[in-house]
């Protein structure tokens, strides 16, 4: 078995496909995947949020524990949430934070629906959003996370998935 759930490329592909679908349907942004790779716990130089302005994060519990995050530069987040509401935003406010949280919520839910038939199940928590220049999120030293890179007309953005190792459930 892979050391990390997302070492299985098909699971990574599920998260990529869901992210593209959610962003296109809700924001109108034509998003493309530009790669993915695993990050070890001590790879601080690869901390995905450290050069970003707003991050939505949602925890997994139950069958598998972990989290998924979605992180944007300010201008990308403003355009994404602006696309959701058909409005123009000038700064990160209550609605932008709420919208980014809702996007990560939909990505987590969509991925769960794709992974359930493969014997992987987890419960979703309520999403939270952190904003501010160069904010930093820490993961356990032992955590192996999978970072997904995306491009869009509104700018690049990233997702990161962390799921603790567990035995696959029988189908």
């Amino acid at each position: 078995m892979s050391k990390h759930l997302l070492g299985n490329e098909s699971f990574t592909q599920d998260f990529i496909e869901v992210t593209i679908e959610v962003l296109f349907t809700m924001t109108g942004l034509d998003v493309e995947s530009s790669g993915f790779y695993e990050i070890e716990g001590h790879s601080q130089g690869l901390d995905v949020t450290s050069c970003m302005d707003i991050t939505g994060i949602l925890g997994f519990s139950g069958g598998r524990r972990g989290s998924v995050l979605l992180t944007f530069k300010e201008e990308t987040a403003l355009k994404a949430v602006g696309g959701m509401l058909g409005m123009e935003f000038k700064e990160i406010d209550y609605y932008v934070r709420d919208g980014v949280g809702e996007l990560v919520n939909m990505i987590a839910g969509g991925a769960k629906a794709k992974l359930q038939p493969k014997g992987l199940d987890f419960e979703l928590s309520i999403p939270n959003t952190i904003s501010g220049p160069a904010h930093k999120l820490s993961a356990p030293d032992s955590a192996v996370r999978t970072r997904l890179d995306f491009t869009s007309p509104a700018g690049i953005f990233f997702a990161e998935i962390y799921l603790q190792e567990a035995v696959l459930l029988p189908l």
Partner: peptide, 8 residues
Amino acid sequence: ITTEGGKK
């Protein structure tokens, strides 16, 4: 209206 679109 939900993100929980799994069969279960």
